Amino acid sequence: MQTLTKLRPWIAGVVAVVTLGFPVAMMIDGYVLMAQNDPMHPDVLVLIGLLILGLVGLIGVLAYGIHGYRVGWRHLPLRQWILLALYGVAFVVGLCMWLAFVGAIPYQWVYWIIYGGAD
């Protein structure tokens, strides 16, 4: 039982790298294909990557937020604060994209996330 307790920070780190890394890799691939003027709509890869990133961020914020509320915010280790911040940033970026995707906010507000600049 002690070995599981010792491995828990490593497991959390690996899960964070995999769950945040997969959508980021999809987005990077989409950006590279957009730069090469690929006609197969690589911007969809970027959009799907951002939407998955938002879902992963939501799940991570809920998990670490509930845990932080239960144990007390002052008792969270630094690694959990870092993971909470990473998931929080992923959630905010994904939330902006979801709101733009469903038409709740103008798409021009988050245009810079996909294409890297204003009109």
Rank of each mutant, 00 (worst) to 15 (best):
P42M: 08
M27A: 04
V89S: 12
V71G: 00
M1R: 13
I59H: 04
V61A: 12
V32C: 15
V61H: 08
P42F: 03
G21V: 10
D29H: 10
L4W: 01
Y111D: 00
Y87P: 08
H75E: 07
L76Y: 05
D38F: 02
W81Y: 11
D119A: 14
D38K: 03
M26W: 00
P9E: 00
P42W: 02
L55W: 11
L83G: 06
F22G: 00
A12R: 09
R79S: 14
I105E: 02
G13M: 05
M97H: 06
Y69P: 05
A100R: 00
A118S: 14
Q108E: 15
H75G: 05
F22E: 10
L7M: 06
H75W: 02
G13V: 09
I11R: 03
I52A: 08
Y31D: 12
G72H: 11
V46N: 06
D119Y: 14
G54M: 11
G116Q: 02
A35F: 09
M40R: 13
G103Q: 09
H75P: 00
I113R: 01
A104K: 10
A25W: 07
G65N: 09
Y31N: 11
W109G: 06
I59Y: 07
A100F: 00
M26L: 13
M26G: 05
M34Q: 15
G117N: 12
L84M: 07
F101W: 07
M1F: 10
C96F: 15
Y69K: 15
A100C: 01
L86P: 02
G68R: 05
Y87D: 01
V89E: 15
V18M: 01
L45I: 01
V44D: 03
M27G: 00
L55H: 02
L95S: 10
A16N: 02
W98D: 03
Y31M: 14
I82P: 05
L58K: 03
L78Y: 08
L78I: 15
A90F: 10
V89D: 07
A85I: 13
L20N: 05
P106G: 03
L83V: 04
V17W: 08
M40H: 04
N37W: 10
